[in-house]
């Protein structure tokens, strides 16, 4: 496998705040690669640099063999981008938007019609192709943006939070289209997300990002294996009591409270369950206790000590806000 993207100590700071910190990653040709992390982790900044929208403060990257600093035009021809915020002209029809994109990216005039017809079919918008974009729903616009990003046959498609703000059913659809487009066009997809399930179900490899750094990288299974075990979930009347029993009597570390239940990662879950019940039976009333396989949320927690969800509910902080203004 060859690397279609390689970054070399890629760094970006805004007014002294380091948004992306000496990033070294490589993306293999043909894979779906996810940058997973809370808002403000530096995902969009990373993608913006790779797409030549932002200039790195230091370091560089190569995409399809071209340097993002020295050969931005060649890089731009090699990539397609679907931005986090909508970026279509809603006074034009879907077909007109696609033609415009094809012309901006120098697609030969003789091929434009065929490419546009077939891509419209792929995202199932051919019946609505001649309607103005302003009559489209959010999910349909997203599908058209995905289609548009592929009209010039890019080597890499960047998707910045592709399903942000979409309802669960539409998200499933969009995932399906992303996979379908990837198969049909044999491209590499790099996406950012703060949705665990999106990274988990859609991508081949996941890089977990926090404060501008990659803190873990691998397939979803590999990342979960690093936890070496199972997660035990305990619902009880006294969560603090449960935690002190777990730490003091059983010697488990890393127990924490999420949404009013105690979670703890252990090596051998099945044999641990009876021990926990025995150890707590005198002081605490346990309502329920269950066992599950670790998910990416647990992986994130394991590396950062925080949950992504708790972070994501907050407004994007400093850097994301500054940078979103700049891109606009």
């Amino acid at each position: 496998m060859t690397n279609i993207i390689e970054t070399f100590k890629l760094t970006k700071s805004f007014n002294g705040l380091t948004a992306v910190d000496k990033l070294d990653i490589s993306v293999e040709s043909g894979e779906i690669f996810a940058l997973l992390g809370p808002n403000g982790a530096g995902k969009t900044t990373t993608i913006s640099m790779l797409c030549t929208i932002l200039k790195p403060t230091s370091g560089t990257a190569k995409i399809n063999g071209f340097d993002i600093v020295k050969e931005p035009m060649q890089v731009r021809k090699s990539i397609g981008i679907v931005f986090q915020d909508p970026s279509i002209d809603d006074r034009l029809t879907a077909r007109e938007n696609l033609y415009m994109h094809a012309n901006l990216y120098g697609v030969p005039a003789s091929e434009q019609k065929n490419r546009i017809d077939s891509i419209l079919k792929l995202v199932e918008l051919e019946d609505r192709a001649d309607d103005l974009m302003r009559t489209y729903s959010g999910g349909m616009r997203r599908r058209l943006e995905l289609a548009r990003g592929l009209i010039h046959y890019p080597k890499v498609l960047f998707l910045d939070e592709p399903t942000l703000g979409l309802d669960p059913q539409t998200r499933d659809h969009v995932w399906k289209y992303i996979r379908g487009l990837k198969e049909a066009h044999d491209i590499t997809v790099v996406l950012t997300t703060h949705y665990m399930d999106e990274a988990d179900k859609l991508s081949d490899r996941i890089a977990i990002m926090d404060y501008g750094k990659i803190i873990a990288l691998g397939t979803s299974d590999k990342l979960k294996e690093t936890l070496e075990g199972d997660v035990i979930i305990i619902k009880a009347n006294n969560t603090d009591g449960v935690i002190s029993v777990l730490t003091e009597k059983i010697g488990l570390s890393g127990a924490h409270v999420i949404n009013g239940t105690v979670e703890v990662t252990v090596k051998n879950g099945k044999s641990m369950l009876p021990r926990i019940v025995m150890a707590t039976k005198n002081d605490i009333f346990i309502e329920s206790i269950s066992l599950r396989e670790p998910n990416l949320e647990d992986v994130f927690l394991h590396y950062t000590g925080r949950t992504i969800r708790a972070d994501s509910s907050r407004e994007p902080h400093g850097i994301a806000a500054i940078q979103r203004r700049k891109i606009r």
Binding site: T52, I53, M73, P86, S87, I88, H101, Y105, R328
Partner: peptide, 15 residues
């Protein structure tokens, strides 16, 4: 175009 995001589509095009 800035407000509705279309400007980004133009600015990242290879022209």
């Amino acid at each position: 175009d800035k407000e509705f995001g279309f400007m980004k589509e133009i600015l990242v095009a290879p022209i």
